[in-house]
Structures are given as C-alpha cells and as structure tokens.
C-alpha cells in the first residue's frame, strides 16, 4: 500500500465514523407504525391468560360453609352439641327415652306365661 492509498483509507475511516453516527440516528431504518401495531397484535394474541392462585383445600371447605363466619358458627354449634351430649341438662330426656318413650315397658314373654327363671332349663330337658 502506497502512502497516498493509506491517506485515502484513513480519510474514509473518518468519513465512515460519521456515516455510522448518522446511521445510528437514521429514521429510515425505523419500523413503520403499521408494523409496530402488527407486533403488538401478535404479542397480545400470544399472551398467557392471567394466572390466579388455586385455592387450597382448607379455603375450599371454608368457602363451602360460608367463609370464616360460617365456619365459626359451625364450630360453636358443634361444641354446644357435644357439651349437651356429655352433660345433658336436668329434665332433658335421653335419646333412648325419647325414641322408646320413658313410660313404655316391653315383655318378651307371651301373656299368661310366668317367667320362673326355669324356662330355658325346661327346653333343655325336653331335648335331652
């Protein structure tokens, strides 16, 4: 390379740096508005739906009985029932009494047969 060739290249290097600077700010290399809108459309079409956290099992149960208020009422009712069960108030009939009636008595023997306490023994004798 001769000295004059080198001078030419050096000069062009400076010009080239100026060209690069102009190119960096060149609006001709900018995308059009229409194209930008197309990219936005693509982005929104590909966008995942907003993710909502899956409620836990406990949250599902509490929401089923009406949230914390409902759950509080349910717990209070359960405790009260349990307490009445183990320590019923005076005059409150037991469940068995309510079912059968407190004044009812039953006899497992036919009318006229006296329960002597030997009834089973008599059967044993006949079979023997």
């Amino acid at each position: 390379m001769t000295a004059s060739d080198k001078d030419t290249v050096d000069l062009d290097m400076n010009a080239l740096d100026a060209l690069f600077e102009q190119a960096t700010n060149d609006v001709g290399a900018q995308p059009s508005e229409t194209f930008m809108a197309r990219v936005v459309t693509d982005a929104l079409a590909q966008q995942p739906m907003p993710q909502f956290a899956q409620p836990s099992l406990w949250e599902q149960i509490t929401s089923m009985v009406g949230g914390w208020q409902g759950m509080g009422g349910l717990v209070a009712a359960t405790c009260a029932g349990f307490w009445v069960g183990i320590n019923p108030p005076e005059g409150l009939p037991t469940q068995f009494e309510t079912f059968l009636g407190s004044e009812t008595s039953i006899s497992l023997l036919e009318d006229g047969i006296e329960d002597t306490g030997m009834f089973g023994f008599g059967w044993d004798m006949e079979e023997g």
Binding site: Q30, V39, V40, A43, P50, Q51
Partner: peptide, 26 residues
C-alpha cells in the same frame, strides 16, 4: 407480560422492536 399485563408488552415492543428491525434491515 407473562402474567397478562398488556401494557408491559407494549413497553417492551416500543423498546426492542426498533432495535431488532434496524439490525435486520441493515
């Protein structure tokens, strides 16, 4: 954007698309 924010997508497009396009066109 992944969480469904459309404005984030627009901001990212405004920031990156001109750079990518500029490179590709050159």
């Amino acid at each position: 954007y992944s969480q469904g924010d459309a404005a984030a997508a627009r901001a990212l497009i405004a920031r990156l698309t001109p750079r990518v396009f500029g490179h590709a066109v050159r």
